[in-house]
Design a protein around this nucleic acid. Structure first.
Lengths: 207, 207
DNA sequence: GCCATTCCTTACCGAACGGTACATAAGCAA
DNA sequence: TTGCTTATGTACCGTTCGGTAAGGAATGGC
């Protein structure tokens, strides 16, 4: 009996009970992402979502929970997908390279012809009215700041930032520029516009 | 007959025909501003507005038109009121003073304890879904950019900016920093956070 | 075959949305 | 007083909102 179970590893191999899902959940999340990204949180209706995802409303609720729960899942996917440049940037070898990766990463994201000309995170944060979601955005902003600050602290110990560098301000500055570029793009700024700001911001970076 | 009309100037002096309004339109606009400011465009409902303004729905429509029309009036009032520091800044004597006025002006606005911790313009621009309002925001962004650029051009001719200063980039940079500070505040950044970014941005300003 | 489980479809829920019809009230002119 | 005009209050419009009840369809296990 035990041998049989071990030999077959049924739990992993067999398909789950019941009728199988007729859609791919990851693709559905991607389609939902496009809508939330373009229209923001309040601007997106459940009908927008089900239309884009190609599924019915009860299927959406069964697979992803309610609208807010789906939004959280999509936002998480966004941070690991289109916005992954942020966490990748922290692995660059120098502080300067980190900042360049962040700035050029966001410009590339904001000017990708296949996606909305905004950052889904910023768009979401400013389009959820006074919903409690705001607190979650606030916490994520702090986490992003702390990630940058920790990286710059390391850069100081490694000598590629001056010993007296104000790592709090530097992290704050990078995050603020990132946000500012997003609002610019959201309201129509071109890639050229964004790159000129990036060049100016990089010029201010400590040598 | 003619003498009579001229002598009396009735059109200016007499009160308008019909039942007089029971509310002050300017105060009503201020109350509507608080709501749009805090909740954004889509996040604000007509019931939110009428509750805050203390008037009934038909009165709102008679006095200000529909929701979008009211929002435009409120936004105009916002630019001439809480956000007037932007146009005032352009009248500062030097480019450096202009930029300082913009930066400290927005920080003061974003940390005023009596108003929401965001900029109503940015909040509106990112909370109108894919409404045609977006185009109006885009045009206003361009106008703001052009105002700054013209001022910096003047500064070059007056010698308080280097002759080779890139006025496009400078105007872009100031506007971007302003937007970035707004998103920071909207997601919980403190006055201290904002001021540290301002100091860093000013340090980058051409001597 | 039959059961248990899971998903899909249809049709619907109450609430809230933006917007308005209509009768009445309040002012001025005659 | 009688009109005329404009604002107000109530009550309502059709639509859309986010969310769900209920029954049939598709799978694996027995």
């Amino acid at each position: 009996m035990i041998y049989l179970l071990i030999g077959m590893k049924r739990e992993k191999v067999t398909s789950p009970l019941g009728r199988p899902r007729a859609f791919d959940t990851e693709e559905a999340l991607d389609r939902a992402m496009q809508i939330f990204w373009r229209k923001g949180y309040l601007g997106t209706s459940l009908s927008d979502l089900t239309n884009a995802m190609g599924i019915n409303r009860p299927s959406l609720y069964a697979a992803f929970g309610n609208k807010k729960s789906l939004f959280r899942k999509v936002l998480d996917r966004y941070l690991k997908g289109p916005s992954v440049y942020l966490s990748e940037a922290l692995r660059e070898p120098t502080a300067r390279a980190v900042v360049e990766r962040v700035f050029y990463g966001v410009v590339d994201l904001l000017t990708d012809p296949h996606t909305p000309r905004t950052c889904m995170w910023v768009h979401g944060a400013l389009s959820c009215g006074d919903d409690p979601l705001r607190k979650e955005f606030a916490a994520q902003r702090v986490a992003g700041f702390e990630g940058l600050r920790a990286r710059f602290r390391r850069a100081v110990t490694e000598g590629d930032l001056p010993i007296n560098a104000d790592v709090d301000t530097l992290a704050n500055f990078v995050q603020t520029a990132n946000f500012g570029l997003t609002v610019q793009a959201s309201t129509g700024a071109t890639r050229k516009d964004l790159l000129s700001v990036v060049a100016a911001a990089l010029q201010a970076w400590p040598k």
